Simulated scan of single mutants.
Amino acid sequence: MVSEESPLLTSTRDGPAYESIYDRFSPDQKRWIVFVVSFAGLLPMFVSATFVPSIPQIAKDLHSTHAIVSLSVSLSIFASAVGALVWAAYSSFCE
């Protein structure tokens, strides 16, 4: 029966259980996870880089000024940066 005194990681005959955490994924799966996370981190920069050249056209289509459209792109980048900080702090609670 599990109680509050039960250890979360028990020892196995091969060694401590915390070492088995690193063997959860194969090396190929680890590479894909790193690739996907890296791409997700770089995606906001690619999005902003595609918006910057089209700011004049967007401002014209929305009957707005260049400054307002540029501000919205900047706020989008800022929101993704703050969101990454929030998710980074939250990720330590997921296990």
Rank of each mutant, 00 (worst) to 15 (best):
E19R: 14
V52E: 11
S38F: 12
E95S: 11
V82W: 00
T50P: 01
A17I: 05
L85I: 02
L42R: 11
R13H: 15
H63Y: 04
H66Q: 15
A79H: 11
T65P: 13
F39C: 10
I68A: 09
V52S: 06
W87K: 06
A49C: 05
I58K: 02
M45I: 10
E5K: 15
F51Y: 05
S11T: 12
D28F: 06
S92Y: 12
E95K: 15
S64M: 01
I68W: 01
V47M: 04
K60H: 13
S64A: 02
V34K: 10
A88T: 11
Y18A: 05
F78D: 03
S70H: 07
P44I: 02
P53V: 00
A17T: 11
V52R: 12
S70F: 06
A84K: 10
P53F: 00
S54D: 05
S54A: 13
A49P: 03
G15W: 02
L42N: 07
A84H: 12
I55M: 01
L43I: 05
Y90H: 06
V2T: 15
V36C: 08
W32K: 09
Y90R: 08
A40I: 05
E19N: 13
L9W: 14
Y22C: 04
F46T: 10
A17V: 07
F46D: 02
Y18L: 08
E19F: 15
W32V: 07
W32H: 08
A17H: 14
M1W: 08
P56Y: 01
S3R: 14
A40L: 10
F35K: 09
D61V: 08
L71R: 15
F51S: 03
P16Y: 00
R24Q: 02
E4M: 13
A59V: 05
M45N: 12
W87M: 06
L42V: 05
Y22W: 05
F35V: 06
P27L: 00
S92F: 13
A81S: 15
T50D: 01
I33K: 09
S80G: 07
E95G: 11
L43E: 04
S38I: 04
P56G: 05
A88N: 04
P7W: 01
G41M: 13
T10K: 14
V37R: 09
R13M: 11
M1V: 10
Y90G: 04
R31Y: 03
F46K: 07
D14W: 11
L62R: 08
S11Q: 13
T12K: 14
K60C: 09
D23N: 14
S6N: 07
T12D: 06
C94N: 14
Y18V: 12
P44E: 00
V69G: 02
L71H: 04
A88K: 03
D61N: 12
D23Q: 12
S76D: 03
S74M: 14
V69A: 01
T12S: 15
F35L: 09
S38H: 08
L85H: 01
V47R: 01
F93C: 03
S72W: 07
P27M: 00
D14P: 03
F35D: 02
G41V: 12
F35G: 08
